[in-house]
Nucleic acid binder design. Structure first.
Lengths: 212, 212
DNA sequence: ACAAAAGTGTTGTTACTACACCCATGG
DNA sequence: CCATGGGTGTAGTAACAACACTTTTGT
């Protein structure tokens, strides 16, 4: 579960109280119930950590199967990438906390690698899909959206060009509203929203496009 | 397991002799052994169908978990995408056969959907990585490579532009050799090879590139 | 009037497509 | 010397990055 908080990409982790990896941080989740879908299981386990309706996007990341990943049992894990928009502050239990992805605490099992794999997936999808909708609030100014992209990507992004790319692709649209910011003046910003709030690939074929 | 055969993208399927889905075609594979990695399990099961050394590329596709996917048991499946280069004709058992992906026979479970998901993954990766190495023979002319790409992508590809894209990206290199073709003359074709025979992403960020 | 914040115009570059043209071989 | 297949040259286009410039507000 990722969210941009305080201008940083953060992941929701749960502090283990018991061995193995007591005191380390692990991804929220748990065992799959009989006759349950993986999605259902994830959402069920997340219910105790965050309100499920706050998860704007969920996608399967992969299945980790190395026998050594669990010191006691032989256990596979299928990880999901979940995104929560900024502006929402889920009420999380005392044993869970948000952690900056670029300075993770000691993690349990292979969960550190899984978190990094999730970040890579997110970074790729930001550039060829509309997945930003799942990190952004319902409406926003371009400066706000730029900060979200910059936090997720890990480098500065130009609001000017970000707008042009996303508008050209038909991903963003203006709401017509305006919003004024600092107390020290400045032109009011246009308010935008994502045209769609479900995943759409906008740049499917970088090359080798089918003949048009 | 995909291979380009007779100018078509084909998948290796196994005809089930017993219920459920008797007579339908299913993906090669089987149950995961205790303490075994998913990769190990796939390769072990493939050994009985094809020579494992012929598999040029293998990557995880996803895990399917719908409880209804198996009529009797509750069973999850993690599918892998495997690629075999053209020119190799694996000795397959009597109950397995190659099938054109665009006209699949009746398939068992959700294997039809899995095959199509694999084809989509392959098509995407062909355009932003060097994964073509796993479909192509060790050396080839551009006309041969174009036919392979066309078969996998499902539409015509220009050999001229294919070469320029792959050479510009540093994916292809000339061997220096030449090969003559038809009995009716024609200029001998240059022989190329892939510079690397393991997966490399060549076009990671379509946009939002990190500042250079 | 000036600073601050946001938006637009413009130019240059790169990567790709399309297509005309040229090259090397066998008959 | 011509048909056949392969390769190169070149022009057009679309998407993007960079940056200067303009607009709109508050003080």
């Amino acid at each position: 579960m990722f969210q941009v908080r305080d201008g940083e990409l953060q992941a929701l982790l749960w502090e283990r109280a018991r061995a193995p990896f007591s005191g380390c941080w692990s991804l929220p989740g748990g065992v799959l119930g009989e006759g349950e879908t993986l999605e259902e299981s994830i959402l069920r386990h997340l219910e105790t950590k965050v309100d499920v309706s706050e998860v704007a996007h969920l996608e399967q990341l992969g299945t980790w199967s190395e026998p050594e990943r669990h010191p006691e049992r032989w256990e596979l894990a299928t990880a999901y990438l979940g995104l929560v928009p900024v502006g929402i502050d889920p009420h999380v239990p005392a044993d869970t906390r948000w952690h900056r992805v670029d300075e993770l605490p000691p993690t349990a099992f292979d969960h550190g690698a899984i978190v990094l794999a999730g970040r890579e997936r997110l970074r790729g999808k930001l550039s060829y899909s509309n997945v930003g909708f799942a990190l952004a609030p319902p409406t926003f100014t371009l400066a706000e959206l730029r900060d979200i992209y910059a936090a997720a990507l890990g480098y500065d992004v130009s609001a000017t060009n970000l707008k042009r790319v996303l508008v050209r692709r038909g991903v963003l649209e203006a709401t017509g509203g305006r919003r004024t910011h600092g107390p020290s003046g400045g032109r009011p910003a246009e308010v935008f929203r994502f045209r769609s709030r479900s995943l759409e690939v906008t740049d499917q074929f970088a090359v080798f496009r089918p003949p048009s």
